[in-house]
Write a protein that binds this DNA or RNA. Sequence first.
DNA 1: TTGAAAGCGGTACCAG
DNA 2: CTGGTACCGCTTTCAA
Lengths: 346, 346
Amino acid sequence: MNDLITINDVARAAQVSTATVSLALNGNPCVKQQTRERIIRIAKELGYSPNRLAQGLARRKSGLIGLAVPDIESLYYGKIVRHIDEAAGQNGYQLTLAISNDNPETERKIIGKFIDQQVEGLIVAPINQPVQQVNYFQELVKTKIPCVFITAYYPQLKAPYVMADLQAGSCVLAEHLLSQGRRHLCFLSGCPEVITTQIRTAGLEEAVRKAAGRQAPKASLRIIACQRLDYAAGYEQACLLLKQNLPVDAIITINDEMALGALNAAISLGFDIPGQLAVAGYDNMIFSSAATVPITTVDQNIDLMCRQAVDMLMTMMKQSGQEANGHPSGIMLEPRLVIRRSTERP
Amino acid sequence: MNDLITINDVARAAQVSTATVSLALNGNPCVKQQTRERIIRIAKELGYSPNRLAQGLARRKSGLIGLAVPDIESLYYGKIVRHIDEAAGQNGYQLTLAISNDNPETERKIIGKFIDQQVEGLIVAPINQPVQQVNYFQELVKTKIPCVFITAYYPQLKAPYVMADLQAGSCVLAEHLLSQGRRHLCFLSGCPEVITTQIRTAGLEEAVRKAAGRQAPKASLRIIACQRLDYAAGYEQACLLLKQNLPVDAIITINDEMALGALNAAISLGFDIPGQLAVAGYDNMIFSSAATVPITTVDQNIDLMCRQAVDMLMTMMKQSGQEANGHPSGIMLEPRLVIRRSTERP
DNA sequence: TTGAAAGCGGTACCAG
DNA sequence: CTGGTACCGCTTTCAA
């Protein structure tokens, strides 16, 4: 039952006080070179390493930053977790992760747990569901724990965020399709009450609107709201759509999983891609490049997004305690269109 | 800078000692019903919730269990994380996650961090790389922190684990292929030094050996060790393989991502699936069912695996402090063959 | 340059 | 039933 070696054991073994051990191990220059080295050596011999709980309690710093994601069974959020973890680690922080399961109530509870855990900062990837009120955020403000949103934000909140510029990305993607001669776009979309869906739709509409004047036949945009947003959903929805024999010559999806699903569905229905139908995804995940027909997509630069979020958080954590630093800022990352065969001119 | 409400604030507001507050909030029956209710009400009004660091320090229990995974950007480990998180939560524990990036050194460091964090238990999904020594495990034993391995184990260690019975699964899969008239199996495999690869290979060989006597032409098994094990790897390796015009009539992969890649590669090379070539995956991930040609696979029952691992860990945590409980046990979960179109008789 | 001691926010034992 | 109090393991003045 005895836990590990404590600082007392080291102090005793080195014939000094615990204070000295603490100072020495934390590299405080007040400790004589020779003493420091002896203490460090002894600590190492004993296999001592400090109890983070006690350390956190005394320093009033847990060394923890919290990350909430709606889902972990997708490449997209997997990447987010990985990069945030990496960036947090580089800044000397340990990540504590929680999964909200796309459920507002769960998300609220998670934030509460994070607060109890004394996280020093918080990164939230919001759920992809309509959310009326984000009351937990008020509590968060009270605790003064810095928080930044990633991949999306809650419009009712004035809080910093960093996300991909989905409007620009969707727009440039649609423009590409239109420039390749496509006219009847269909967007396999998410819940229309969710902010990111709205942003994406706005981008697509923008492109269609601009094109409508210049080109004939007139471009159209059909939107299908899907419940789930995974591979199977893309497959099913594309099947449903294509069997209707509507004048659709391009399918755009919310992510690459769905695009791959839609592509495979179209192929098994006998469609020629890109001859009869273009398919485009979003996120530039690994498999979009290696599909039967490589899929055009938009890169979100998740790596950069995560690093910026962590940087922003670190800055806020440092400023915390000082005055509020003006407006919380939102960062939109530029999209990068990745053109592949699935959208070539027919 | 003031943190949240402390127990002192509650005690003062309720006109009682902190001891009473603590007892009341923890449901100790010694506190008078009426007092308890008052304290609880006041605590709620004040928005008090205990500081986990302090609580952990005093109780000598962090409430944390650690999970190490080699990778988070795959459906497979994503599922693992999700289910472990869920099961841990149901047992009142908070998960703390770390990603080993398939790197032994990183894995070792992670374990050290977990120890410092005072995790009460540990679940390790081993890396998929050859590992000569797992010395960190000795330290772990010294700390008496219970640890269970999941998805695989280190053969040099006598430690409990729970994993899918990959040998049985591979065997039954190969038997199925052979029974459908396939004779020349090719296994897109992982590093041959890794235990799970060996187990899988053993299963396949077992099936081929058994069949070799009975059926003609004689069955053969070709093994290709792949570096990466993702969609793109499956695609590339299948391309390389199929372009060689070898007598291969079935491809088996290590997971469904690779199977999907291989399938798509074969299709784009003009192969008829399952007419000319069978493709089989492993894990029964969502997209295997919805591929252009639905893919035969083996279900690992990840959900059950995770629950068992957590149960086992909980049991060990309870017994911890008492005597060692006999032999650490390993659990192998029965495979479930999921037959789909990709392996139908030609 | 080092040590003593007062916390950090709880818990839990013991006395009343 | 409730309050006093001694820790838990580490940090951080303050004196010596």
